[in-house]
């Protein structure tokens, strides 16, 4: 089963912080595939799935950000009514709990991926064996 990588960046919750991060990515020709922002009590964690993970990690660190790279599952969904439901139903049947999630639309109206963060990715992989789900892999995350 394949998995993809996601960046997590610590940011203070104030104007201009996201702009600074996206500028680093843009200036270095890094494409953002999916985004999620979680914030609470004055700070937030910004999550990006990008095409050049290692470059993004290095450039953001250089710019002084606290960043980490973690693995997530990217599960293929049909980009049509009921598409998300079909995937979530399987996850629920197999007992996989979603910690955080976001969506990567690979081809509009055709193919999308649900990016799922779980507590224990190895365990989730076991649970989802033979589930019939299709996963996006590192090769497909990298630029074409």
């Amino acid at each position: 089963m394949e998995k993809v990588q996601q960046l997590s960046i610590f940011a203070e919750n104030r104007p201009g912080r996201l702009e600074k991060i996206t500028r680093v990515l843009g200036e270095n020709g890094i494409n953002i595939l999916a985004t999620a922002i979680v914030s609470t009590n004055g700070f937030g964690v910004i999550k990006f799935m990008v095409d050049k993970c290692d470059l993004a990690l290095a450039k953001l660190r250089e710019a002084g950000f606290t960043v980490s790279l973690s693995e997530v599952l990217a599960i293929e969904m049909k980009d049509k009514p009921g598409g998300l439901h079909d995937v979530v139903q399987i996850l629920s049947e197999k007992g996989v709990n979603i910690e955080n999630a976001s969506v990567y639309v690979a081809e509009s109206r055709k193919r999308a991926y649900l990016l799922v963060e779980v507590k224990d990715i190895e365990k989730a992989k076991q649970q989802l064996k033979n589930s019939g789900l299709t996963f996006l892999g590192a090769k497909q995350q990298a630029p074409a």
């Binding site: 996601q6 609470t40 999550k47 980490s68 955080n100």
Partner: peptide, 18 residues
Amino acid sequence: EMSKKLFSDEIRKIEELR
């Protein structure tokens, strides 16, 4: 200040730390 050692990609853990 947040540090490499303190950071987690799970916001819940950072909030716990706070």
